[in-house]
Structure formats: C-alpha cells, structure tokens
Design a protein around this nucleic acid. Structure first.
Lengths: 351, 351
DNA sequence: CTGAAAGCGCTAACAA
DNA sequence: TTGTTAGCGCTTTCAG
C-alpha cells in the first residue's frame, strides 16, 4: 500500500517534460529558470512540452534544493484586533505581488504560542517573518525564539534594542495634522477627548496637539483635555463634561473615531450643529467614520500602507540583505469630510 | 559561490543525529516518527542525541518524500470584511491545534486572483483549502481552478452543485430565536428593520420572523417591516418611519447591530426608554453591541464556531477522506443584554 | 549550448 | 530490532 496520497497537482515531473522535448532534465530546468545559453530552438521545444503537459514545477522539491520557500510568516497577537485586518491586507498584497505566500499565525499575545509558531515556521523554512501587534503600538523585546539570521520586521510595535526594523504610524504627525486643520478652520479652543494612559498613542498624540497649538501662539489649557478609554461608551461622559464648563471648546479633536461618534452624538443632543457650531475631528479612519451624519473628518491611520511597507522591508531583507534597522513612521493623512468646515482664508474672506 | 543561503534553522540533519547516537538514519527516522519495534535502549540514545544537537527535522524534505505539508489554504474574497477576522480566527485555531499552518490569500472577489492563488497553493502542495466569503452568505459555483481531489470547504458561502461541504450560519433559526425572545418579553407588534434585498440573509431572516409570529397566532403585518442597507446611517430614517405610524411597534428586531444602534438612538431621541417602553434586538453580535447604552441584546452570528467547523471538516477530509458534502448550518445564539427585558411568565406573574 | 551525475534531507521497503 | 538502498523532484557543477 502506498502512503503517498495521489497529489492533486499532476504528477508530471521535469523528466517527463525532458523526455517529450527530447532534452535532458537539466536543460528543462534551465529554461524554466530563465538561465541563458539555451538555443532558441531547444527553448521553444521545451516550452511547447511544458505547455502540452501542463507541467507545473513542484515547489517543494525546489525549496528543498534551494533552501528558499517564497513564504513569509505573519504572527499577530490579536487576530481580531481592530487594526489587524487592514495591516494584514497590506502584507498579503505585496507578498502576492512578489510571488510570496504568507502563513497566518495567532499568538494571542502569549510568548509561548509565539515561540511555538516561530518554531513551526522555522521548520517550514519560511524566508522571513513579520511580528504584528493587532491593536496597540508598543515597544517590545526580541522575538520569543531566536531566529538566527532569518529576517524579521515588527509591525505596529517596535524595538530599539533588538536591531529589528519596525513600522509604526506617525502618531505625533497625525495629531499635528488634525490640530492644524482645526486651527485652519479658525478654531481657538480645541478640546481633546483622549484614550487611556497605558497607550503610548495617548501621550504622543497629546504632545502633537500641544506643540501645534503652542506653535500657533495659543496656550495649552489642561481644562480642554479629557481622557478615558478608546471606545464609544466613554465618549459620552467625557464630552458632556468638556462641554459643560464655563468656557467650552469651540471644536473637538477626538483621538479615536469611536470617541468622535460619541462626541457628535452629545453635541447633537445639546442642540448644536456640526460643523456650524462646533467642529469634530476623529482619529483612525475606521470604516464607519464616513457613514456618520455628518461624515466624520478624521486622521487616517495608514494601516494598509504600513502593512505594505513592512512586507516590502521584509522582502527586501530576504532578497538583498538586512535593511536599516530603523523605526519607520508612516505619515497619517487627514481625511476631510463634513464634520469640519474650512473657513475662507483671512485674505480672501469677507471683511 | 553557493546560492544556498545559510538556513536560519540549524543545518544538522538526521545523519548527524544518527552518527552521534551510533545508529543509522533510518533508525532515527523511526524514533522521530514513533514507529514501534525500536529497542528502548536505542530509542533513548537517539532521543538524547536529538536533544543534545537541538535537532529539528526539515519539514520540507519530509514533505517532498511524503507529499503532505501539514498546510492549509484560506482564500477570502474580502480580507477586510466585517466577518472575516472571526472566522479566520476559528480556522487558524483548529489548524494550530492539529499542527497545521494556514496560508492566507485575498482574492478581492476576482476569479482570476482566486485562480492564481489556487495555482500557487497547489504548487506548494497544500493539503486542503477553505474558500471563505468575508461579508455575505451566497451560493457560488466551483472553485476558479480545478482542484483534482484536494479537499475543499466553503465558508460563509455554499454550493448545491459542486459537492463541496459548506458552512454557513443558521439565519433562519437566528431570526426565530430573536423573534421568540421578543414574544417571550410580551411584545405583540414586533417591528423589523432589515437589510437590502440582494442579501439572502435579508429574506431568510424575515421568513424566520414571519413564521415565528404566525406560529404564535399573530398576523404578519408588512407595515411593521422596513428594509434598506445594513449600516447605521440607514437605520435612522427607517426607524423614524416605522415609529411614526398610527400604531407603532412595541419592539424592534433589527437585522444587524449597526441598524440596531441607529434604532436605539432614534428611540432615545423620541424620549422613549429602552427597554421599558420599547425593546430592541440586534443581529450579528458585533464588538460594539455590548458597549451601547443600554447594552444590546442581539442574535450572535457564530463566526468563530463556523471557522472552527470549517477547519475541522477540512482536516477530517484530509485525514480520513471526504466528509459528507452537506450544507452545515451553525445555530445562532441569543446574547441577552439590557435592551430587552424578560417579563415574568404569565403563570408566575402578579394577577 | 547540452547532458551526466550528485545530492538537498528525509522515509520506506526490504534484507539482514 | 537495525541498516542498506533507493528514491521524492528539482538544481547545479562540470565535462563534453
């Protein structure tokens, strides 16, 4: 009894092609791999044979010989994280473009699982691996398993000590962009609804906000800032609180779209119009941002782009040697919708 | 010049182990694969050598020999679909449990890309593949490429003609559950906010609703039903319209959580209390459902479970031969939260 | 320009 | 119980 299951891919090998074309297997291999010094004539005969037999080279055999698998690993700590999918899409996209497949692994944030997955991936001879955080930019140490000289890239997390290239969003720049936009709209008292203190983004975005308003000659006023958690249910109280003070803000920069949705709802309940009476800017550019009434202006987290960059860095490392082990900060673009209104510039405005 | 890049996994082979243990490679292979008839003594020596050398078998070589890769393919038409992640998690979970890795591929719904991915996966000798729809249960035809006898499972999509096992949610049963719950709460006029007609779920869920109220002796009233699209922005007008009629419904069954969120907001704006004045039930059990005020009672789409089942069916087919090519409908459970209130049963109630 | 030969690391008869 | 042998399907010197 043969234990070999009938492979679904046809069982024709390079020898069959060689035989049909009347050449040696070595020659077939050469035309398959585009190695020069093959006469046009043989080249054509081989190609015809390949065609006729519908031959597909067995990439396992090739991998065994070459020690390359054209395969990447992608390990995430949270497969259901809010930001996971888009980054994954970016990674998958570049990988597919360059003929690579990607293994998907979920570590649930447990080092032991990360180790186990890395071990399997190492056994399967993948060419490189991306370690991705699904919901929070964070500094972390080395991979849970020593990877020898296999290329690694960190995504949505970073390290300063392990010599691993890292791709993260430019939260600071994003906050600057959002704040500047509100400033450009003519606002002077920009309120902030922020996330929890155990997220780096919370602090970095606030810093970006602060620097921008100060650069505009305004004074940073802690009374305009509230912080809680990222999701909607926290936005209601925070916004109500912020708007209840004597000198309420004239605009709101919410550091997540979920918070912005809550904020808009509170603003509406108070009988104010967005953007006439008050502008609202979000952060993230989640799918629902464009479906709000009015559609939410927001600072976009460049997730797909980040995934792509991580993939590109990894492939580059695989093909050409280690890329600079820097921290790559991808810019966050402002997505302008209807929850803010650009005022006429002073020069062109009505006097 | 060697083109062989220094493999990150150590280069020790089964021969090194054999040598150190003073046995033949074949013997090492036997203990590695748990084949009996190896003396306890040699077994121990081999294991010691494996340990000492930190030996890890090269799974590429093993795959070449055995024509099995312990690898699955997962192709989705929408990597960023709302339901994609959870199903993926289920698949990844069972795969990892059984020592399989999964290749992730995005076809963007284009047959040409599906074909290309399948081709690559076939070349890489995967053991089986799951074709998953990321956002909509739909009937579809055969895979874009003939897969020979490689096992396939459809997930969140199905076929009646291609002999492929399919896993989908029991939308009908879910609608029955949700409706029955509202009935149990004592409601008599259950309004429905539904999705667009080009989704099968729209019709199936409505049918489930209808059958349930009719089974309870009530008459199906089209005036209680509204339909638009799945997402929030459509929920406002639909709900307002529904509540504005002469005899408004006493409860709302929204066929998506997004619609339910909109409905709740409208209800609140009209000064009604949930659940005192009106109950609201959603569908899907999205992450945000539990964060609403009040937390939303909803019918859960069993996405992780479906992913797991699809994975299990596939692995079973790989290991033991094709499973019955049926359509597996996974039940939708009611997640009871605070937007509905179970009334005391008639018997035990105050007279 | 082409082919013969060796071997990637492993498993599976078959013999001993 | 163990070892010898013969490949899996491919690539790559190296000789012709």
């Amino acid at each position: 009894m043969s234990t070999k299951k009938p492979s679904s891919s046809s069982n024709i090998t390079i020898r069959d092609v060689a035989q049909l074309a009347g050449v040696s297997p070595a020659t077939v291999s050469k035309v398959l791999n585009g190695i020069p010094y093959v006469s046009p004539d043989t080249h054509a005969r081989v190609q015809a044979a390949v065609e006729q037999l519908q031959f597909r080279p067995n990439s396992i055999a090739r991998s065994l010989k070459m020690s390359r698998t054209s395969t990447l690993g992608l390990i995430t700590n949270d497969l259901e994280g809010v930001f996971t999918m888009s980054m994954m899409r970016g990674v998958e996209e570049v990988a597919a473009e360059q003929g690579f497949s990607v293994f998907l692994c979920n570590s649930y944030g447990e080092p032991e699982r990360e180790r186990a997955h890395l071990q399997v991936l190492l056994d399967k001879q993948i060419d490189g691996v991306i370690l991705m955080n699904g919901f929070r930019v964070h500094e972390r140490g080395a991979p849970a398993l020593s990877l020898g000289n296999m290329p690694v890239v960190y995504l949505f997390q970073y390290t300063r000590t392990s010599g691993i290239p890292s791709v993260i969003p430019d939260d600071f720049g994003g906050a600057v962009t959002g704040t500047q936009h509100l400033l450009d709209c003519g606002h002077q008292r920009i309120g902030v609804i922020n996330g929890p203190p155990n997220y780096e983004a919370t602090h970095i975005r606030l810093a970006g906000y602060r620097q921008t308003i100060e650069a505009a000659g305004l004074t940073f006023d802690p009374a305009l800032v509230r912080a809680g958690k990222w999701y909607e249910s926290f936005g209601y109280a925070l916004t109500n609180d912020l708007l209840s003070q004597a000198e309420p803000p004239d605009s709101l920069f919410c550091m997540s779209d979920s918070l912005a949705v809550a904020a808009m709802s509170v603003v509406r309940e108070r009988g104010l119009n967005i953007p006439r009476d008050i502008s609202v800017v979000g952060f993230d550019n989640r799918a629902f941002a464009g479906h709000q009434t009015p559609p939410l202006t927001t600072v976009k987290l460049p997730l797909v782009e980040m995934g792509r960059l991580a993939g590109e860095l990894l492939l580059q490392a695989i093909k050409a040697g280690k890329p600079a082990d820097e921290i790559y900060r991808v810019p966050c673009e402002l997505i302008q919708r209807a929850s803010t209104r650009l005022m006429a510039s002073p020069e062109s405005g009505v006097n």
